[in-house]
Design a protein around this nucleic acid. Sequence first.
RNA 1: GGGUCGUUAGCUCAGCCGGUAGAGCAGCGGACUUUUAAUCCGUUGGUCGCCAGUUCGAUCCUGGCACGACCUACCA
Length: 501
Amino acid sequence: MTQENQPVIYDENQIIAERRAKLTEIRQTNNAFPNTFRRDHLTSELFKQFNELSKEQLEEQPTIVKIAGRMVLKRVMGKASFATIQDMSGRIQLYISNDHTGEPVHAAFKHYDLGDILGAQGTLFKTKTGELSIRVTDLQLLTKSLRPLPEKFHGLADQEQKYRQRYLDLITNEETRKVFAIRSKVVQAIREFFVERDYLEVETPMMHSIPGGASARPFSTHHNALDMALFLRIAPELYLKRLVVGGMEKVFEINRNFRNEGISTRHNPEFTMLEFYEAYQDFTYLMDFTEQMLAHVAKQVLGTTHISYQGKTMDLSKPFMRLTITQAIQKFHPDYTTEQLNDRNYLIKKLQALNIHLNPNDGIGGLQLSLFDETTEHLLFEPTFIVDYPAEVSPLARRNDNNPGVTDRFELYIAGREIANGFSELNDPEDQAARFQEQAKAKDAGDSEAMHYDADYIRALEYGLPPTAGEGIGIDRLVMLLTDSPSIRDVILFPQLRQED
RNA sequence: GGGUCGUUAGCUCAGCCGGUAGAGCAGCGGACUUUUAAUCCGUUGGUCGCCAGUUCGAUCCUGGCACGACCUACCA
């Protein structure tokens, strides 16, 4: 290791040294990092506006344009050269020749490197193969790139580097740019969907003194001035329902949650969650609402509700299946009889035989859920609402009027993954207090994911939460589905990785 | 947490049943005024992830470690 106050140059090589030397030379005569060039077009606009014109039409009505971007291809041929410039919208080819720029500009261009950022002015024309290009009259180096780009044909292939140096992945790989453009549009479409329906977008705290709203282990931190323990939120749920108590009868929030748990192709420690609440509605309304929203988002973003995911297709415009936990198990495993699935002893024996972890205190519902999670969940490719969740695993959901052992709750599965979780909210403060107490007991008994008793939340419920329906949707997983991405890391710009070195 | 696989030039990858390494791209020099991953000639560039062990000798074999990918477990 170098001494502390010396710059650490850890991976200089010959290519970087040569580029540095070029930069030093540029500094002798010019501002090496000018910020005076202004483009008047994006490359995609030029194609949209002028690609229809013929070679002759372009020559008759010369159009002068200014564009800027990163040079990603370069072909030098003596007295004339071609370069491909990439900006946020696309690419266009430059034609640089001594005839139109003068020899010194072309000579300087020959020393520019792939990755350099250039500003160009010139006249639109079409090459003999009919490609819209710019015949350059003025060319400026706007930013010298000191590091070589990944190989121009294969791009960046190393998965680790794609995640760690996402900027390189974005420069190199159009597919990656597309994924994050879609992600942006998905969020946009969802936001519009709610705003059109008179929902209020809100932001609730990311730092909670009592982490609540989900069963998960939190990240903990400390506020110095208040000398107080704080937790990064695992869910916004309890705050959003406090807002419904306050009269915000339709609210939504799109924001990050943090869970201190395993990392996988489906899990990142920080992930984006949509949660929304609407007073005077129930969970059946949410299921219809969710169907509409997903179809709308797909249509809006992809132009179709026909989704292809990892080689299989589905149609988001059809009504989603609705199955109870036991119906779903039987649909994929017809050998289980209804009697067996309602026999506590049978379930315990079966789960043990399948080597499935089970909570010995679980009632029949909890055992059914364990069996479902292990045997059936991953098979639910077509969008499917699973209903009849047991109250014991749903501490914030309203009990069913006819069967108090289950709640008015659903989870939505698509492509074998949980995408959404919604329910009619538990608004009986005394029942909620009792459920919190059960959770606190479980916590004392060693369940690190059990919930805390949140006294202020109970107090809020005591003022009166109107009958309400609420739901959370995992945005990252939704984007995975809509971009055909196999890993959650592919839809998060900077996924969590171990520290380098 | 467990399992499998991987790590060689800036990038994409070969290779070595053990004798300190190659290609293409990028770079540098040269030719070339319509190229398209331009082409042609010449050329620079390597702690073969790290640390031990075995060996006369290790990039290669063995063990450990680091990092990553995938699968699996908890979770959304």
